[in-house]
Nucleic acid binder design. Structure first.
Length: 374
DNA sequence: AATACGGGGAA
DNA sequence: TTCCCAGTATT
């Protein structure tokens, strides 16, 4: 009996029917794109100059930071991390709290926890050298299919099929794939495989990403400037590709955040659980974040980390996470000098907040509370 | 296959 | 507002 077709084989079969425009062959794409890349490559802090050796640590660090994060946002964080921890060994011996503090504001904090765990693993189990194969890289925390392929190709010169949001879009347009995401992913992978060259696969991937970031952009693609316009089968329909499944609406959660102050000005700050939303980060204690429910301060007071009798509201902070909106009613609470800090809590003077691993939503809360007149 | 997981910039 | 970004881990 015949072996059942694998998902990859089905995708390759489906991709077989898709062709380029102008009689172009798959093999024509990489040379065109690499020629464009050699003339227009973006200069980025983590990108080696032509002929310059690539540092796997730098490639890895930048790739982790760039997951679902724009180049502009990453810039300063990358500079601070490399200045403070120039090698994977240095990062491996850093305190997790320091890593989280440097990461604060960048989002997706599991990345920072995995970054630290990965550095320790590379240091302890691989002698401080990153594995040079996709399979080896894939086994490290925080490194998935994309990052493993990207590091293997960019840092180690291996041929790897790199798939990210930009490349999905470029490939979908290039071959006019109208199947919506995420169903189209296997086909897009098969098509990208077909145009990935044996040599310079790292440059090819970066060229595809540069193209997606500067020319083959999501809304108004600049096809007139595109080096692949001749072979592109998506001419005219590019702007609506790739098609995507509709997104779900975000619910709103509400709660009361307690700005608990001692007479000397110290504020009560709490560390969040290691996993889950904002895992391991610091927070201004609050009542439970409940869906579709208005915050009643009197009721919420019973959920304060220490017994409090009254509070006065100083305003509302709104923040949007990946899958819900949050409205925090900030309430100031005065407590005595001898008030003890409960489990996972500590007293922090306002000028010390900058040195904490405070995520953006909590910085907003602090700004609201400190801006309010006592 | 679906869902959880941040934050900011562009249109 | 909405979209989307050099995605990964978990269920």
């Amino acid at each position: 009996m015949a072996r059942p077709a694998t998902k990859a084989e089905i995708a390759a079969e489906a991709a077989h029917d898709l062709t380029l425009a102008g009689g172009a062959a798959a093999g024509d794409i990489a040379p065109r794109l690499l020629d464009w890349y050699d003339r227009h490559r973006r200069r980025l802090p983590w990108r080696a100059e032509p002929g310059e050796a690539t540092d796997p640590y730098i490639v890895w660090l930048s790739e982790i930071m760039l997951q679902q994060t724009t180049v502009a946002t990453v810039g300063d964080y990358f500079a601070r991390f490399t200045a403070r921890w120039p090698t994977v060994e240095a990062l491996a011996v850093a305190d997790l709290d320091d890593v989280l503090t440097e990461w604060a504001g960048l989002g997706y904090y599991a990345r920072a926890r995995n970054l630290h765990a990965c550095a320790r693993m590379v240091s302890a189990e691989h002698g401080g050298r990153f594995p040079d194969t996709e399979e080896g890289l894939r086994a490290l925390p925080g490194i998935g299919a994309y990052t493993a392929a990207a590091i293997a190709a960019i840092a180690f010169g291996r041929r790897a099929v790199v798939m990210d949001g930009n490349i999905e879009r470029v490939t979908a347009r290039l071959f006019a794939v109208e199947t919506p995401l995420p169903a189209a992913k296997p086909v897009l992978h098969a098509l990208t495989d077909r145009i990935t060259p044996a040599r310079r696969a790292g440059d090819f991937a970066q060229a595809m990403m540069d193209l997606g970031a500067t020319i083959c952009v999501p809304r108004s693609p600049r096809c007139m400037l595109c080096p692949l316009s001749a072979p592109c089968a998506g001419q005219g329909i590019a702007a609506r590709l790739p098609a995507k499944a509709p997104k779900k609406a975000k619910p709103t959660r509400r709660a009361v955040a307690f700005w608990i102050e001692r007479p000397d000005g110290a504020v009560l700050i709490r560390r969040r659980p290691e996993s889950g939303l904002l895992g391991g980060m610091m927070e201004v204690p609050s009542s439970e974040w409940r869906a579709d429910e208005s915050p009643a301060i009197a009721q919420a007071l019973t959920e304060a980390p220490i017994p409090v009798e009254s509070a006065h509201p100083v305003g509302t902070v709104r923040h949007t996470f990946t899958h819900f909106h949050l409205e925090l009613a900030v309430a100031r609470v005065a407590v005595p000098d001898d008030a003890a800090a409960p489990e996972a809590c500590r007293w922090v003077m306002p000028d010390g907040l900058g040195g904490l691993a405070l995520p953006t939503v909590m910085r907003k809360v602090a700004e609201r509370a400190l801006g309010a007149t006592p």
